[in-house]
């Protein structure tokens, strides 16, 4: 069989599997673009977990009660853990964590743009948990059915913890709106600042999305950006109402016919501007990551040297 024929046969078998809703596993044949697309998406997801530790870490040392401090610590610990699973899932596709970190630090790989917005008040810890983790869950629930086995299984595990994160965020908001007028104002301010960026987390409109069509065909993505965003808009509207806060979208209106909310237009100029690296915290987040990484270099070297010495001793003894 000619090489081309063999490839097209493999591709046919691959697509048959995808169409039959079977998972693709690390050792299975896959098109190079499928592999690259997945590495891009999974590593971006891992980087988001890791960079996301920064805005919350920023309030870890200022949490207003011991209970909240403990919950926030536990949440950030989960996030670091999610980062680890996801890096490992990406490694099954033939990349390494070092390569992924290098791509993050050089700006080649992205992370969720939401983390380029500053966390300024305790209310932001509520808004981030509720809206940012909430938007992430809508996306991740859908990704539990993604076609790549390790990614899908990672998502199933991560979703369980993410729903705790969202609840703790909403719970912070509840405490604030039931508190003093200052606390309620803090909640409103955080909602106002994080609502639109949370909607942007779903990415550009389907018509503008660079990777969407192929990802849908390969079932890496299971639902479109706009459909997922709509779900989030719908579920968030009633949550905002329950909190007794003003909705930041003045054009939000229930559409009986569609069975969904119609909403105002996102400021796409802002979206692309932040993606291009011009947001409030883009530079700060990367510099923080690079600095920690560089400051840890001597530790990683010491670890390698120590292990090499141990190994040498073992070899000598044997």
């Amino acid at each position: 069989m000619s090489y081309e024929k063999q490839v097209s046969l493999q591709e046919q078998q691959f697509m048959d599997k995808i169409n039959a809703e079977e998972k693709i596993e690390p050792k299975d044949w896959m098109p190079e673009k499928y592999r690259k697309n997945l590495i891009r998406q999974i590593s971006q997801h891992a980087h988001s977990e890791v960079i996301g530790m920064q805005p919350e870490g920023n309030f870890l040392t200022r949490a207003p009660s011991l209970r909240r401090k403990a919950i926030l610590l536990s949440k950030i610990q989960d996030e670091a853990g999610h980062g680890l699973y996801l890096y490992s899932a990406a490694e099954t596709l033939g990349t390494t964590r070092e390569e992924m970190i290098e791509a993050l630090q050089s700006g080649k790989a992205k992370y969720a743009s939401i983390f380029n917005y500053p966390a300024l008040t305790w209310g932001d810890m509520g808004a981030i948990g509720w809206l940012v983790d909430g938007a992430a869950i809508v996306n991740q629930v859908s990704l539990q059915r993604t076609s790549y086995g390790p990614y899908s299984r990672g998502m199933i595990r991560i979703c369980k913890e993410e729903s705790f994160h969202q609840r703790q965020g909403y719970d912070i908001m509840l405490s604030l709106v039931n508190g003093t007028p200052e606390q309620k104002a803090m909640a409103q301010d955080s909602l106002n600042r994080f609502y639109w960026p949370a909607l942007m987390m779903f990415g550009p409109h389907d018509s503008e999305s660079a990777h969407s069509a192929k990802s849908m065909e390969w079932k890496i993505k299971r639902e479109t950006n706009d459909d997922l965003r709509q779900k989030f808009i719908d579920q968030t509207a009633s949550q905002i109402e329950f909190l007794g806060l003003e909705h930041p979208d003045k054009d939000l209106k229930w559409n009986e016919e569609r069975g969904h909310y119609d909403s105002g237009e996102i400021d796409w100029e802002e979206f692309y501007n932040v993606i291009a690296g011009n947001g409030h915290c883009n530079r700060q987040r990367l510099e923080h990551h690079i600095q920690a990484h560089e400051e840890g270099a001597w530790v990683r070297e010491a670890l390698a040297a120590y292990n090499a010495k141990k190994q040498a001793k073992k070899t000598k003894a044997a």
Partner: peptide, 25 residues
């Protein structure tokens, strides 16, 4: 807890968060 997001690698961020959490507990 000041170490969180500043460890030499990700496993250490988890370990630090974990130990900090024990002490806050």
């Amino acid at each position: 807890s000041e170490w969180v997001s500043r460890g030499p690698f990700l496993e250490e961020d988890i370990a630090y968060a974990n130990v900090a959490l024990d002490y806050v507990g």
